[in-house]
Nucleic acid binder design. Structure first.
Lengths: 150, 150
DNA sequence: ATATTTTATATTGTATACAATTTATTGATA
DNA sequence: TATCAATAAATTGTATACAATATAAAATAT
């Protein structure tokens, strides 16, 4: 890989582009529920495991608490979640789905599933794609670790 | 692909994560030059083709002019580029590298290249990865077109 | 030649996104 | 138990990111 660096031959650039296109892709189905892509991702995590701390979500979603705190406040204001201080440890804020937030899992995920079907992935291609992206992540993480140990 | 939607089995989520890791990955080498990842991507484009309009960059980088205008102003302020109204068409703003901006291509790209080498891609894996990501983009674009024609 | 439409960029408002700092609480230790 | 260290969120400041709107210039139509 000693060729000249150009925009189009950079994996980072193509990943960024795919990221942008996914954002756009989710916009239409999620607009019906007044959700942004990141808000949807946050709800996905809560539908898997509810009553968690901001720190937990931060780890799970790979977002800083500086990003999450205002995002969660917006989700609270819109009635998806509640934010309550943990009585047992007043430093923590527990994020819980409201009844409405929990109930919306089915309609939202089935709407999204409908859109995902239009991407027309067969199982093998889907798995290959996932593995390729996870491999990119692994290389980046390994490189980061190597940096820290030097 | 009729399995339940969870965070980790979503291509979008893994793409987002790879995008975040790339941002982090570029942070250290680019900090020496006081550049962010997006500013670097913008310079990459200008090193390929200089003296372009905001619109051209918007298309090339897949960013809206609402993102680019302030970004370009910051690059101008930091001495990387100049922004001048096109005399032949006063609606246009031409973006040109300064002498300093042009000169920095070599040191910056070679620093970045050094970091990219640490990702340890052989040609075949690199090409497979690129093709997989481009395939994701294609599926998203095709799905978007299908939406518009319905 | 004037009105209309199109084009190019800038601005506004809202939402991420994160580093660095601050505040508050809890845990550890001397 | 008083002090210090560690932890959890919130806040601040800066930088993307885009939709919608505004502004101004150029192209087109009447």
């Amino acid at each position: 890989m000693t060729n000249k660096i150009t925009l189009d031959n950079q994996i980072c650039f193509q990943i960024t582009r795919a990221h942008q296109l996914f954002n756009k892709f989710y916009q239409e189905p999620l607009s019906k529920f007044n959700l942004t892509y990141v808000q949807y991702i946050t709800l996905l995590s809560l539908w898997e495991k509810d009553g968690v701390t901001v720190n937990y979500l931060s780890q799970k979603l790979g977002l800083s608490n500086g990003t999450l705190t205002p995002l969660l406040k917006r989700l609270e204001k819109a009635g998806w979640i509640t934010r309550t201080r943990d009585k047992k440890d007043e430093r923590r804020v527990l994020i819980k789905l409201t009844e409405h937030g929990a109930k919306q899992e089915e309609p939202i995920t089935s709407t999204v599933q409908g859109c995902l079907n239009s991407l027309d992935y067969d199982d093998k291609t889907f798995n290959n794609t996932m593995n390729t992206i996870l491999d990119v992540q692994n290389r980046l993480e390994k490189s980061e670790e190597a940096k820290e140990n030097s």
